[in-house]
Nucleic acid binder design. Structure first.
Length: 282
DNA sequence: ACCACAACCTGGCCGC
DNA sequence: TGCGGCCAGGTTGTGG
């Protein structure tokens, strides 16, 4: 489900529920998610105290008092709830962490594309991630350097976690619309100024989405079960056939890297070699 | 290096 | 009511 704004929203909501709590019991109901859950069962989490909750890209990092971390990736349909133990288990809830105040941290994931595991200080999956889009090291110069010689469409470049982490299909579409860059433009063809606009568009889009509690398309829920409201502000995502909020043209659609791609043919000019380079100002 | 594609898994929706 | 086909926010691995 989640991209950066959704995970950030969950993180913020979890902090008051988890910080300082003792994990009294771990219950595992499924043999595996994306990875087997047996190592989690054997990790000796019971009796550990949670010292904090962080986020890196789309990963939640729940810090334990022995220096290890619980790493949680929500996949496409992961939902975390904090509820009392009396509430019956739902069909796709796979792991319960019982806390010393009677609350239960429950992990649900319909499609089981998610990850829940214990890691040390770091892990290979975290080390492979590029910069955070809301941090300073994500900037026009970095993207310019990183994109030289790359023919890959800028949308896929933007969704590459090694380039920048946390931007998935929804926010790649919205970001490119916002900075008026066509998703098919070759990453290596963009100029430094294009990347400057792209960086600002990504930051603004992500910040607004976090403010709205993320985008609930179908499955995503906040920790208290409520929905994120940013989908109502999507300009192009899942708006094929509707009118562009800026120029009124009909939102177009194409498939890129197997993913649904939405754009405004009026605002986001088609990549054409040498053609209309003069028309649109910036 | 790049890119298309399949796979992981379940459920919702649409058309027939 | 049922069935087949298509779609879905992510990640990883394959083969060309």
């Amino acid at each position: 489900m989640p991209e950066l704004p959704e995970v950030e929203t969950v993180k913020t909501a979890l902090i008051p529920h988890l910080s300082g709590r003792l994990v009294t019991r771990v219950e595992i109901f499924s043999p595996r998610l994306r990875e087997p859950l047996a190592p989690l069962a054997a990790a000796g989490i019971e009796g550990r105290r949670i010292t904090g909750v962080g986020r890196r890209g789309r990963y939640l990092i729940i810090r334990l008092d022995d220096g290890r971390n619980l790493l949680v990736h929500l996949g496409m349909t992961g939902v975390i709830r904090i509820e009392r133990a009396e509430i019956p288990r739902r069909k796709h809830e796979h792991v319960f962490f019982h806390l010393d105040n009677g609350d239960v941290f429950r992990f649900e994931c319909t499609r089981r594309f998610s990850v829940v595991k214990v890691i040390g200080e770091s892990s290979p999956e975290l080390d492979a991630l590029g910069p955070e889009p809301l941090e300073e090291d994500f900037n026009a110069g970095y993207l310019f350097k990183r994109s030289r010689g790359r023919k890959t469409p800028v949308k896929l470049f933007l969704m590459d976690n090694a380039v920048v982490t946390g931007i998935g299909n929804i926010y790649a579409n919205e970001t490119l619309f916002r900075c008026r860059i066509h998703p098919l433009r070759a990453a290596g063809s963009l100029k430094r100024g294009d990347f400057a606009r792209l960086v600002e568009a990504a930051r603004a889009t992500l910040r607004e989405a976090i403010e709205a509690g993320g985008s609930t398309i179908r499955d995503f829920r906040l920790v208290d079960g409520s929905e994120g409201h940013f989908a109502q502000q999507h300009s192009v995502y899942q708006r094929r056939g509707q009118h562009c909020p800026v120029c009124g043209q009909t939102i177009g659609h194409l498939t890129l890297g197997g993913r649904s791609t939405f754009f405004c043919p009026g605002c986001q000019t088609e990549p054409r070699k040498g053609k209309k380079a003069a028309a649109p100002g910036q």
